[in-house]
Simulated scan of single mutants.
Amino acid sequence: MSESCKSCSQQGGCTSEQQEACGKKPEDIELENRLSRIKHKIVVLSGKGGVGKSTVSANIAVSLANAGKRVGLLDVDVHGPSIPRLLSLKGQQPQVDQDSMEPIQWSKNLWVMSMGFLLPSDSDAVIWRGPVKMGVIRQFIQNVSWGDLDYLIVDCPPGTGDEPLSALQLLGKDSKAVIVTTPQLLAIDDVRRSITFCKQVETPILGLVENMSGFVCPECGAEHKVFNTGAGEKLSLETGINYLGRIPFDPDMARAGDEGFSYVKVYPESETAKFVQKIIEPMLALDA
């Protein structure tokens, strides 16, 4: 709700005509109406590439959907969309009419939208500057028929550039961030920048996830500290940010990404899936 609306006796209950009379543009009204039907907006960020952020986003979305929640998964990585491959949706095309797009339905509770659905081929390069990218991300939020959602999970490209900034600005100040890191100190340094970024744009951080934290042997199930563990937890203590948990490096999860199936759906009883389940508990608590 805008500042002008807060001082109005209608308190947001006015018609679109009345909103336009208050100076709101029709496209802003449409965006607000779309967002009003989404309870929780969670943006997944990382200052470092190669940390498995898209894999984490996909498994969080599937886990929430498996818990009975209505979930949207939005891939705003314009230059390198990964979600279609991760969920075996490559080649799918959304139904588009004059005013809206239908997201691709992955399961009865999960709907997906990605730039990857709109590219003619995998080899096509998207060469766009910031304002154009922001316009596309706005369309993905405003013009996609998400319907009523409990959660919208937004998978952003690494860094603190146009895409995450646009997503957070468009979603508004009731959105929250989840930051993904790996145990290496090099990744942790970049994650600090993501934390600073969220503070500067006044986005609350729901917590940190440490991905590829140790290695699960596919033969015996034992866990080995290949990349060390605990750096994410130490950073959370240092910064006062909630530590959501860690996900070990599991060869089956890597294979799931390559072959396009959901790890937590195929291996729901695995130790790694249990780690993911722990990570979504604070998110489920938002809807309690």
Rank of each mutant, 00 (worst) to 15 (best):
C198W: 01
K199I: 07
V201P: 00
E202S: 13
P204A: 12
I205Y: 01
L206T: 11
V209K: 00
V209W: 00
V209C: 03
N211S: 09
N211G: 08
M212D: 08
M212V: 08
G214H: 06
V216G: 04
V216N: 03
P218W: 05
P218L: 05
C220W: 01
G221D: 04
A222R: 12
H224D: 11
V226A: 13
F227D: 07
A231V: 09
E233Q: 15
L235D: 02
L235Y: 03
S236M: 03
L237A: 13
G240D: 02
I241P: 00
I241E: 01
N242Q: 13
Y243H: 10
L244D: 00
G245C: 06
G245F: 03
G245N: 05
G245H: 02
D250Y: 04
P251V: 05
M253Q: 04
M253L: 15
R255F: 11
G257Q: 05
G260F: 10
F261Q: 04
Y263K: 01
V264T: 02
K265F: 11
V266W: 10
E269P: 09
E269D: 15
E269R: 13
S270W: 05
S270R: 03
E271N: 12
T272Y: 09
A273Y: 04
A273Q: 03
F275E: 15
V276L: 12
I279R: 01
I280L: 08
E281W: 09
E281Q: 15
M283E: 03
M283F: 06
L284Y: 08
